[in-house]
Every structure is written in C-alpha cells, then in structure tokens.
Design a protein around this nucleic acid. Structure first.
Lengths: 208, 208
DNA sequence: GTCTATAACTCGATAGAC
DNA sequence: GTCTATCGAGTTATAGAC
C-alpha cells in the first residue's frame, strides 16, 4: 500500500487508477480535478474509483503522500551529507534540478499542498523525511569564519539556491513570454541552468 | 485589511463585492473560490453578485485584470529605464520585493492565470504592459564586453533575480517549515531579502 | 471486480417580490 | 438595488445487478 519506490510497474486496476489520479491531480489540483476524468484516463468506471479508494479526498491524499515521499529523500540525503561545502552545493543544485526537470509539477504541488493543509503535512507526511539544514548552516558559518567564502547568512544562501532551481519551472510559461522563447528554446534554457546556477552561486561566494 | 494604494476606497456595494472577490480568488484560485463565500465576505446576497457582474467568470476576469495591471507597470518602468546597470539592479530588486511584500499572492496568481488561459493573457491583458527586457540584455552584454562584470548570460541573470525575489513569497509556508521559523521571524527574514538579494547578485557579478 | 443507474449534494445562475 | 426561493447542471458517492 505504501509503495516507496513509486509505481514498480504493475498494471493492476488499482495501479492504473493511481497513475491516472497522479496525472490529473498534479495538472489540475484538488479542486480542478474531476473523478470522471480520472476514470476516463484509467480506462475504467467511476464507481471503481470508490471501490479502491473510498473518496476523492483519500485518493488525493495517497497521491500527495507519494509525491512528497519521492521528492524529499534525495534532497535530504545531499543536504545532510558530510561533503565539503562547494561540492555539496554542486550536488544539491544538480540533484534538485534533475528531480524537478523530470517532474516539473512537484514544487507547485507541494507548495499548494502545504498552503491548504499545513497540519496534515506536518503530522502525517513530513516529519521523517524533512531535510534538516543545520549541518549545512554550520558548514557555511565555518567557511565564512575561515575567510574561505564572503560573509553571508546561510538561511539566505539556501533560500537563494532553492529559489533559482525551482522557480523557473513553476513560472515556465511566464518566463517563456518574458524571454520570448519557444518550447524548444525553453527546454535548452532550463537544461543550461544546472551549470548557470552553480556558477552564479559559487561566484557570489568568492571572498572579497 | 491593509489596502495602501489599491481600490480608491469607496464603500459602494460594487466595490465591496470586488474586494471580497479579490480576497477569495487570490486565496483559493478560480476553481476553489465559491460565489457563496464571496457574497458572505461582502456581507450581501449571492444574487447581487450576478446583478453587478454577470457571472463568476466575468468577476474573475475583472480581478485578474486589476492585479496584472497593478503589478506590471512598476516593474516595466524600472527594467526599461536608462539607469546604469548596478543601479537598475538595485532598484529592480527593491521595487519587486516591495510590491510582492504588500501583495504576496501576486506571483502565484499570475503564474496560474497564465497556465490556465495563455491566450487570454496574451490577447487581452498583457500586450501593453509586458516588460521588454531587451534594453537590459544589451546593457549586461556591454558591461561584460567592457570587463566591468564577469561573463554571464543576461537571460539567466534576470531569471535568477526574479526567482530569488518571488519564490520565497510563493513558498513562504514551505520556507517556514524548512527553516523552522515562526511568522514573526519569517516577516523579518523576508524584509532582509531586499538587501541580501542585492548583495548576492552584485557579488556574483564581480569580475574574476 | 466491474458495470449501470441513480441518489445526494454542491454550486452557479435566474425569477420575481419588495 | 436587494432579497428569498428555486431551478438546473455538474459531481461525488452509493445501491445493486452481473
């Protein structure tokens, strides 16, 4: 029932429903999603949705849980590792952009999920998988003290990094209009960012 | 509610409806918003909503237009100005964060608006107010060529800046959990960002 | 397990009195 | 202009046959 690896292949009805729900919920959100569309995409009847998952609410909860449990651990692993700072920053940006490239809906989905049900997020879903940034913070402070990087508050550094990785995917259509890019150009542009963001951050950290 | 410039004050029924709709639509989106809730917050009856604004769709359109027309011109003015690059970056970050601080829902609203109705956005709402970044791009390229800043692609620079300004507000609840901050600490943290983002960007641009 | 049919409910919209 | 009452479309959920 829990399914940590997420969708290990099978083509059972339950799985097909889950996958269809995953698509629809991530594209349209809880309110915009309709059970009929989920049934259609799964190629089955509406009634079966309720047979396997009691209600729309429950089905949504399953999908939300799966997405969060899939996205968080990889991030967490990098940020809590004991790599040296520069290498950690490189890996973090690379991992983060890789995950989001493959599932661009993730940041927005998690954000609106937290907005709507902060309690559920805290209680049921997150506690085990939430990254603890303290190690990273102390690492930054140490390098500042040693004069290896310029003076910067670690909280702002990490928020800057996450912002530059996640936002372009959330705001992709807006970026495309602003920069006047087609879908192809945009794909290339987003791929470049793994390198560009890393360079940008490390350049900013050079001691004065 | 705080309402510094927006909505010229009066307390006519039409205004009260608009303000209530503004709140509900920005908090819950088009699908999540209910006409009943808008009526309740405006302290009037559901039927009156249709008397003043023909339909939910029309009411939403009014709100969307107002938000976009309020947010864009200030941005545009800065980015299209003929200020020297460093000063332009300072002003842009300052202006952008000021606007979003006062109306934190704006970025997410515009993003989901574009996602759902790209045509409407292009045709009706934007063309006049959309910022043209070409001047800024050429300015960056000139300073790179002159060796005044390190080599950087202007498109990535502007996306970096917008990301660092907007994302922390969009993802505020997530940031709070990640950084373990209370609402008060978070408010201070977001205020600091005007300075921190500016410093971060200018530090990154230092020639090597 | 899977389907059809339908109940139960939500919500946007309209009619009509005042 | 503002209200009450209600309609009708669309949606979630259930009953019951196969």
């Amino acid at each position: 029932m829990d399914n940590p690896e997420l969708q290990p292949i099978p083509d059972t009805t339950e799985q097909k429903i889950f996958e269809a729900a995953h698509e629809v919920f991530t594209q349209k959100g809880m309110d915009g999603a309709k059970m009929q569309e989920i049934a259609d995409r799964a190629g089955i009847n509406k009634a079966l949705l309720h047979y396997y998952y009691r209600s729309k609410e429950k089905l949504y909860e399953m999908v939300a849980r799966a997405i969060i449990n899939k996205a968080m651990p990889a991030i967490r692993q990098v940020i809590e590792s004991d790599l040296p700072l520069e290498e950690k920053i490189r890996r973090f940006i690379g991992t983060y952009i890789d995950i989001i490239s493959q599932n661009p809906y993730i940041p927005l989905f998690i954000i609106s999920e937290i907005n709507k049900h902060p309690e559920r997020f805290f209680d049921a879903i997150l506690p085990a998988t939430l990254p603890k940034p303290e190690v990273f913070f102390r690492q930054v402070e140490a390098e500042v003290a040693a004069g290896k990087i310029r003076n910067i508050k670690p909280q702002h550094l990490i928020v800057n990094i996450v912002s530059m990785c996640a936002f372009p995917f959330i705001g992709k259509p807006m970026m495309r209009i602003l920069l006047g890019m087609g879908t192809g150009e945009m794909r290339i542009f987003l791929e470049e960012r793994k390198y560009e963001v890393t360079t940008f951050v490390l350049a900013s950290l050079r001691p004065e």
